[in-house]
Design a protein around this nucleic acid. Structure first.
Lengths: 227, 227
DNA sequence: GCGATGGTTCGGTCTCCACCGAACTGTCAT
DNA sequence: ATGACAGTTCGGTGGAGACCGAACCATCGC
C-alpha cells in the first residue's frame, strides 16, 4: 500500500482523454512533434504543451530537441506494454503496435526508421559494428574508432559532413535495443540500398533483404538473419 | 484514437489514490469486504462504497453477496496484469501477487482458500471429481450426483448440514480455473488434513502434500502433481 | 420484536485540473 | 532585420469529482 500513490499518479496521467490520445498516437514507437500530438489529442497546443510536460516529467515520454522541433516518444517498452494491458481491460481494439502486431513480421525484421535501418537488421548491424570495435555507442551519442573509419571507407559508407548529429543510438521499438541513427546510420543505409542488399517494399517502411544482401551482410558484418 | 476514451476511463479509475489502494489490496486474488477495503483505502465507508460501485460498474471488480456482506475481488486476471504493468512503470515494488511472485511456487501448488483447498491441487481435485461424474459445477452452484455421494461417504468426507452453501465453484487466482468451495470443499479439505495427506506450513496459507498424500491422491482421485 | 452491524444514498463543500486567450521565447528562412 | 512558425508560460474560468456527515435500508443475533 505504501507505493500505491505512485501508481495512482501514473494512472491519473493516463486517465485524461487528451493524454490518452497522445500516448496512443505514440504507441507504435514513432517520435512525433508537439503539434502533431496536439492534433491527435484534439486540444490546443498550449494545453498539449502542459500535458507533454507532465508526461515527460513522469518519465512516460522522452523528448528529443531537434532545431525548433521537439520530438516525443514513449520512454520505454514498459510504457507500451502498460498501455496495451490497459487496452486489453478496456476492451479496446489493439491497433498496430510495437509488441503485438501479427502482420508486422516483415517490419520487425528490417525496415527504415526515417533514413536509416531498423528492426532486427538494424540492431544486428549496430551489434556487429560495436562488437568489432568499430563504433562505441553511448546513451548520448556514439564514437567511431580509427579502425571503424577505415572499415566504413572501405565499405563505401563514409558519412559526409553536415550539422546533423554524426552518430546516435536510436531505441528500436520492436527489438528494444539501439540501432544506429544520425549521419552514420543514413550513410550505412544509403550504401546498402546502393549495393542492392536491401530493397524498399511498396507502401510500407519494411525493407526486404535481397539474396545478394544476405551473403553481403554475412561476409562484411557477420550478420545472418533467419527471416 | 477512436476507443481511447475507454482506456482513459479505466485509467482514471485507477488514478485515484483511494481506488488504487483498493485494487492493490485485492491484487493477491482474495475477496475482501467493503469495510476492509475502506480501511485499506484510508477513506470513510461511504466514500469507499462509491468507489466500489464505480469499479464494479466498469467491470474491474466483481461482487459476491453473502448475507449482509459483499465480497469484492478482481474481475479477471487481465485486471491483475494491468495493475502489475502499471506498477512496473511506476517503479513500485511488485508485492506478492497472483501471476508474478517468484517465491509463491508453494502457494500456487497447494494452499488453503478460507477453509478449502486451492491451487493446483484444489483445481485438480475439482477436475477429477467432475470428470468422474461425481459432481457437476456450474457458475452459480454445484450438484453432487448419486455416485458422488457414495464416493464421498466412502472417502469419509460427507459434508454436514448447515445453512452455508453446499457446493460452489470458486475461481482460483493462480490457476484461473474453479476449485470447490462451500461445505463440500471444507469437508474435503478437512478429511485430507485428517488423513495426513496434506499439512499446513508455518505462517502461510501454503500446504505441503505429504508422501502418503501423494499416493493417496493418485489412488483415490487419479491426481498426480509434479511439484 | 430489539439493537448492532455492514453497506448505501443524499446533500453540500472544497479542491483540483483541463482548457483556452493572450503574450512571450526561441529557431528557421529570406 | 523581419516575418513565420514551434512551443511555452501565465491568468482566469468552469466543470468534475473526492470527501464526509447524516439519514436510510438490509441482515444478523438475541
Amino acid at each position: 500500500m505504501s507505493d500505491m500513490p505512485r501508481v495512482a499518479a501514473v494512472a491519473a496521467l493516463l486517465g485524461d482523454p487528451a493524454r490518452a490520445n497522445i500516448m496512443n498516437a505514440l504507441l507504435d514507437g514513432r517520435a512525433l512533434m508537439a503539434k502533431e500530438l496536439a492534433f491527435a489529442a484534439r486540444v490546443s497546443p498550449q494545453t498539449t504543451s502542459g500535458h507533454l510536460a507532465k508526461l515527460t516529467q513522469a518519465a512516460l515520454l522522452t523528448v528529443e530537441q531537434q532545431g525548433r522541433h521537439r520530438y516525443f516518444r514513449l520512454a520505454s517498452p514498459l510504457v507500451g506494454q502498460m498501455l496495451e494491458s490497459i487496452m486489453a481491460v478496456a476492451g479496446a481494439e489493439t491497433p498496430r503496435t510495437a509488441t503485438s502486431w501479427k502482420g508486422g513480421e516483415p517490419l520487425r525484421n528490417a525496415r527504415t526508421c526515417y533514413d536509416h535501418l531498423a528492426g532486427r537488421l538494424g540492431v544486428a548491424l549496430a551489434d556487429a559494428l560495436t562488437q568489432r570495435g568499430y563504433i562505441a555507442l553511448s546513451p548520448d551519442g556514439g564514437e567511431v574508432t580509427e579502425a571503424g573509419h577505415a572499415f566504413l571507407r572501405d565499405f563505401g559508407a563514409e558519412p559526409g559532413l553536415g550539422k546533423r548529429v554524426f552518430c546516435r543510438p536510436c531505441l528500436d521499438w520492436s527489438e528494444r535495443r539501439p540501432h544506429i541513427a544520425g549521419r552514420l546510420g543514413a550513410a550505412l543505409a544509403c550504401r546498402c540500398f546502393d549495393l542492392g542488399w536491401v530493397a524498399r517494399l511498396r507502401d510500407t517502411r519494411a525493407v526486404a533483404i535481397t539474396p545478394i544482401g544476405r551473403t553481403g551482410f554475412a561476409a562484411r558484418f557477420g550478420v545472418t538473419l533467419s527471416g
